[in-house]
């Protein structure tokens, strides 16, 4: 991946990456890289924060300040970074287990505070790093080493969760549509407030193999057949949307942003203190 763009945004000395053949995480990394380029991100003033998992290893590939933290806690660490230096751009990279299981509490509260950061969840529907156990986004009845008889729990809709928790921007894209994913991430990077992008990505090694979904190419084809753009989804009735994944920009709202609200509070308190 030694293109001029990669030279500019990635630690090329860290490549090749650690991900398996056919894994979609590299596609999401590429989309984020192009989005950073589109918004002309200053990489001296960008911090990429991640948790633990295959997805979270992406933080180590970006050529900027990077913080690879503990499992599930990326958003909480990122909150500290952003509050200490609000002028920095903070991007959080996380997996579906990292974000929605162990880190679920931090997810809803970062969204509720609407603190400015761009959170990208690489959703491969399993715990990739620990070899495919079920995650909060594993579909009902899917198979996993910790659900050998079929997973009986319901899965989380991460975008819906982000929206109701108070995020300013919510979008979803899949790896088969990498261009549109980059575009949606770029919009997230421009948003004032907490911006969330769910990137649906394939894990042929664990999820695909265990559930007999075929090769990476087969899994991408599956994505194409099961995704519906949000504009078109609005014209379909619930029965037609059954089993479909809605992609595109799902939500945007302009709530007060946390670091700005805090700066206003400080200004007000200090003014009162001197008068």
């Amino acid at each position: 991946m030694s293109t001029p763009l990669a030279e500019k945004y990635l630690r090329v000395d860290r490549l090749p990456h650690i991900w398996c053949r056919g894994c979609g995480h590299g596609t999401v990394l590429g989309a984020l890289m192009r989005a950073l380029d589109e918004v002309e991100a200053d990489m001296d003033r960008t911090v990429v924060v991640s948790g633990i998992g295959c997805a979270s290893r992406a933080a180590g590939y970006f050529n900027c300040d990077g913080l690879h933290t503990t499992h599930g806690r990326a958003l909480a660490f990122a909150t500290g970074v952003k509050l200490a230096r609000p002028e920095l751009r903070v991007v959080v990279i996380t997996g579906d287990g990292d974000l929605a299981a162990i880190g679920g509490n931090h997810f809803i509260h970062a969204a509720r505070r609407n603190i400015e950061m761009t959170c990208i969840c690489f959703n491969n529907h399993v715990y990739g790093m620990t070899s495919g156990q079920h995650s909060p986004t594993s579909p009902r009845l899917s198979l996993a080493p910790t659900a050998p008889y079929g997973h009986i729990e319901r899965d989380f809709d991460l975008c819906e969760l982000a929206r109701v928790a108070g995020a300013s921007y919510v979008a979803r894209a899949a790896t088969y549509q990498a261009r549109s994913m980059a575009r949606l991430i770029a919009r997230a990077l421009r948003q004032q407030g907490f911006a969330f992008v769910e990137a649906i990505t394939q894990c042929p090694t664990y999820y695909g193999r265990r559930n007999r979904l075929g090769s990476a190419a087969d899994m991408l084809r599956w994505q194409k057949e099961h995704t519906v753009d949000v504009a078109r989804a609005r014209q379909l009735d619930p029965a037609e949307l059954e089993g479909k994944i809605v992609v595109g920009e799902l939500h945007r709202a302009d709530w007060p942003e946390y670091t700005r609200a805090y700066a206003e509070l400080v200004a007000r308190v200090r003014e009162e203190g001197t008068s």
Binding site: V49, T70, F77, A78, G80, V81
Partner: peptide
């Protein structure tokens, strides 16, 4: 976590 993030 926030304390460590801020410290860094």
């Amino acid at each position: 976590a926030a304390v460590v993030g801020a410290s860094l």
